[in-house]
Deep mutational scan, measured.
Amino acid sequence: MVVWDEDGFQGRRHEFTAECPSVLELGFETVRSLKVLSGAWVGFEHAGFQGQQYILERGEYPSWDAWGGNTAYPAERLTSFRP
C-alpha cells in the first residue's frame, strides 16, 4: 500500500508492506490519499489501531470520501494500518 499526506496523491509518500501502528512515527501527521496495490488492508482513524476502521480493497483512494464517504461517522484521515 502506498500513502500520501495530501489529497490527490500529493505531498509526502510512503510505501507499506507490513502493519503500521502510527504514521506519526514516520513523520506524517495524517494520511489523506492512498493506493492499495494488492490484497486488502484495514485503515484506522487513530494510532494504535483505534477509532473508526475501514476495509481498503485493491484500488485508488484519492481523498477521505473515497474510503469513508458512506458512513455515519466518516474519518477524514487515517493514522494506522494493518494488512
Rank of each mutant, 00 (worst) to 15 (best):
residue 67 W to E: 04
residue 41 W to D: 05
residue 12 R to T: 09
residue 46 H to R: 09
residue 7 D to I: 14
residue 74 P to V: 10
residue 9 F to G: 00
residue 44 F to P: 01
residue 18 A to N: 14
residue 39 G to P: 07
residue 77 R to Y: 07
residue 18 A to V: 12
residue 61 Y to S: 02
residue 62 P to M: 06
residue 69 G to W: 06
residue 65 D to K: 09
residue 33 S to T: 03
residue 31 V to D: 03
residue 34 L to G: 00
residue 10 Q to F: 03
residue 55 I to V: 13
residue 12 R to W: 02
residue 8 G to W: 05
residue 27 G to N: 13
residue 15 E to W: 08
residue 42 V to C: 08
residue 37 L to E: 06
residue 53 Q to G: 14
residue 10 Q to D: 05
residue 40 A to Y: 09
residue 1 M to R: 02
residue 28 F to K: 02
residue 9 F to I: 01
residue 69 G to M: 08
residue 71 T to Q: 13
residue 47 A to R: 10
residue 18 A to K: 09
residue 35 K to Y: 03
residue 79 T to A: 08
residue 7 D to F: 15
residue 46 H to C: 15
residue 79 T to I: 08
residue 65 D to G: 13
residue 73 Y to Q: 14
residue 36 V to A: 02
residue 18 A to C: 05
residue 53 Q to I: 07
residue 60 E to W: 06
residue 15 E to Q: 10
residue 1 M to A: 01
residue 23 V to T: 10
residue 74 P to K: 13
residue 45 E to W: 02
residue 45 E to P: 05
residue 6 E to H: 08
residue 56 L to I: 08
residue 21 P to V: 14
residue 7 D to W: 05
residue 53 Q to A: 10
residue 5 D to E: 14
residue 62 P to L: 05
residue 23 V to N: 01
residue 77 R to W: 10
residue 43 G to P: 04
residue 16 F to M: 11
residue 77 R to F: 12
residue 54 Y to Q: 06
residue 20 C to G: 03
residue 67 W to N: 06
residue 55 I to N: 15
residue 25 E to W: 06
residue 74 P to L: 12
residue 15 E to F: 11
residue 81 F to Y: 03
residue 44 F to T: 03
residue 30 T to C: 06
residue 15 E to N: 04
residue 13 R to G: 05
residue 10 Q to N: 10
residue 39 G to Y: 02
residue 11 G to W: 01
residue 24 L to K: 14
residue 6 E to R: 10
residue 46 H to F: 12
residue 78 L to E: 02
residue 74 P to S: 12
residue 8 G to N: 13
residue 46 H to D: 12
residue 52 Q to Y: 06
residue 63 S to Q: 09
residue 19 E to T: 07
residue 38 S to R: 12
residue 22 S to W: 00
residue 72 A to C: 13
residue 32 R to E: 00
residue 28 F to C: 05
residue 31 V to T: 02
residue 3 V to E: 02
residue 10 Q to W: 01
residue 13 R to P: 06
residue 9 F to A: 00
residue 53 Q to L: 05
residue 55 I to S: 13
residue 76 E to K: 14
residue 25 E to K: 09
residue 31 V to A: 05
residue 24 L to T: 09
residue 37 L to H: 09
residue 37 L to A: 07
residue 71 T to S: 10
residue 76 E to N: 13
residue 52 Q to F: 05
residue 34 L to A: 10
residue 57 E to K: 11
residue 8 G to V: 04
residue 61 Y to C: 01
residue 76 E to H: 12
residue 37 L to N: 06
residue 68 G to A: 09
residue 63 S to G: 09
residue 40 A to C: 14
residue 64 W to R: 14
residue 41 W to P: 00
residue 48 G to R: 10
residue 68 G to N: 12
residue 18 A to F: 06
residue 55 I to K: 11
residue 47 A to M: 06
residue 47 A to W: 03
residue 13 R to V: 07
residue 55 I to L: 11
residue 11 G to R: 01
residue 34 L to M: 12
residue 47 A to C: 12
residue 35 K to C: 03
residue 58 R to Q: 15
residue 3 V to N: 04
residue 60 E to H: 12
residue 19 E to L: 05
residue 45 E to M: 04
residue 18 A to E: 05
residue 51 G to W: 04
residue 23 V to M: 11
residue 60 E to G: 04
residue 37 L to W: 04
residue 46 H to Y: 07
residue 19 E to K: 06
residue 33 S to V: 00
residue 74 P to R: 14
residue 22 S to D: 15
residue 54 Y to M: 08
residue 14 H to W: 12
residue 15 E to G: 04
residue 48 G to F: 05
residue 61 Y to T: 02
residue 66 A to T: 12
residue 14 H to D: 02
residue 7 D to K: 07
residue 58 R to N: 13
residue 40 A to T: 13
residue 56 L to D: 02
residue 17 T to D: 14
residue 43 G to N: 02
residue 77 R to G: 10
residue 11 G to I: 00
residue 1 M to T: 01
residue 20 C to W: 03
residue 6 E to V: 02
residue 5 D to C: 09
residue 35 K to A: 05
